[in-house]
């Protein structure tokens, strides 16, 4: 199985505190991997390293067998990797749902009509077409998460990095997210506190504990 993501001896410190060291992980093509762990162990930092927004780490990060040394190397893989942050309030770069979903396409130069059509398709696929003209900040937390996911999926990334996708969501919204994520065939790393949620997505679960990434049975 070809690897989408490979981490070799990744270590990361937050000021004077070593969060984790010598982390090794491989995520195959269309493989779903979950990482759990207590608060503050560095799960989100690990995901940020893979997403290319945290550079101060030691070790080697490979995306599709290419060694990523800096942000410049990451640039050509930017749209291959979709990252959903934990706090999505700053994720949105446009006011309405349709405009934000179209954003990533339009910024790459795709014309307005084509981007609009593709955005409609993705909204329909995620069953949120009825929200298309709504102002994002007026939506519920669950709806915002799905809109953010639509904004990521529109560029057809090969890897999805999801940081607490069901954080602070109700049961109904969590079910919707599970349904959506199960229907997506992509390489994924999912971080969550909810074991029941993770177990419905993948049997491959790791735990970040005592600065190490260990198999979680």
């Amino acid at each position: 199985m070809s690897c989408s993501i490979t981490l070799k001896n990744i270590s990361y410190s937050n000021k004077d505190n070593i969060l984790f060291e010598n982390i090794n992980l491989s995520v195959g093509h269309e493989e779903k991997v979950a990482i759990i762990g207590s608060n503050g162990v560095g799960k989100s930092s690990l995901l940020k390293i893979i997403a290319g927004i945290e550079e101060s780490f030691f070790g080697e990060l490979y995306l599709f067998h290419h060694l990523i040394k800096d942000k410049k190397d990451y640039k050509k893989f930017r749209f291959e990797v979709g990252y959903l942050p934990q706090d999505i309030s700053s994720f949105f770069l446009s006011p309405t749902v349709i405009e934000d979903v179209m954003f990533s396409l339009r910024t790459t130069g795709i014309n307005k009509d084509e981007a609009y059509q593709k955005a409609l398709e993705i909204l329909e696929q995620l069953e949120i077409l009825h929200l298309k003209d709504r102002i994002i900040y007026e939506l519920s937390g669950g709806e915002q998460k799905i809109v953010a996911l639509a904004g990521i999926l529109i560029t057809k990334p090969k890897i999805l990095l999801l940081d607490e996708p069901t954080n602070a969501l109700d049961e109904e919204s969590e079910k919707r997210i599970i349904k959506i994520l199960n229907s997506i065939k992509k390489s994924m790393i999912i971080i969550s506190h909810h074991k029941s949620f993770i177990e419905q997505l993948t049997p491959t679960i790791y735990k970040l504990e005592n600065k190490k990434l260990i198999d979680y049975k």
């Binding site: 940020k48 997403a51 927004i53 930017r78 700053s90 994720f91 949105f92 770069l93 446009s94 790459t108």
Partner: peptide, 13 residues
């Protein structure tokens, strides 16, 4: 971070 992740190049559409 969002600018970087989503390829923002100074334009809002």
């Amino acid at each position: 971070d969002s600018f970087e992740l989503r390829g923002f190049n100074g334009e809002i559409f």
